[in-house]
Design a protein around this nucleic acid. Structure first.
Lengths: 120, 120
DNA sequence: ATAGCTGCTTACTTAAGGGTAAGTACTTGT
DNA sequence: ACAAGTACTTACCCTTAAGTAAGCAGCTAT
């Protein structure tokens, strides 16, 4: 995983923000370019790695696996691997991830509204 | 403002995502490192530039003004300047920004919940 | 007259995130 | 023997976001 300089100003600010602003805290878990897209896909149910890849054609394998791992580390998704060949791995929301669904739906609903009311 | 290469892969993907995923669309408006923090401050009412600066001690003026401008451009905040010396400029939610409040509250609520249930 | 307040702007540097492309392990189908 | 499928991993580079530091305009209080 990308290594991060422990004492960079940026890291310091990030920590501070996460402690001071609950919205920042959440953005750190579900924000960024790819996480919303992955989470959105998982909202319709468990998916295997290759399904996600196909569902999000523009994502690279590196990004997909990197963010899945992060979501796992944050306790939002669960990875289940069946020891068969070829491998069969599924990703799905954990209970904590499930509790995010209403939030994601609220976000998406606002997005749809704005989107239709002013074009892209 | 920062100029952006029109045809970069990243830009292309970003456009695609915003069209395909409503959550991404919203993240592009309110995500990133500083926007959530600024929006959170504005939720408690109109603030002048210097108040925001003091309320968010670790933000640089460059970041503050840059994101305020972006939020303005996205129609989420309104800037009002009184032509006095020293200048007096206030920033507040537009009606569209107001409509975001429930969403931000939902996000914050989830954040608080998670935060208390597993430490930072 | 000089420092201070306010709300910015600019030029430059660094750090983080993302993209490209290749490789790995292990088995089934041909 | 070799291609194909699955789920990754790795090394390297480029783009974008953020940080640093300085300056400006215009008035006011010392």
């Amino acid at each position: 995983m990308t290594l991060v300089k422990e004492n960079s100003t940026w890291n310091f600010n990030k920590e501070l923000s996460m402690q001071a602003c609950p919205v920042s805290f959440v953005m750190n878990k579900i924000g960024g370019h790819w996480k919303p897209i992955i989470l959105y896909q998982l909202m319709s149910g468990a998916k295997r790695y290759s399904e996600l890849k196909r569902a999000i054609p523009t994502i690279t394998e590196k990004m997909l696996i990197q963010h899945l791992k992060q979501l796992q580390a944050d306790g939002l998704v669960i990875r289940t691997a069946e020891p068969v060949v070829p491998p069969h791995v599924i990703y799905q929301f954990s209970p904590r991830g499930e509790s995010l669904k209403p939030v994601l739906n609220a976000i998406a609903a606002w997005g749809y509204e704005q989107w239709s009311s002013d074009g892209i």
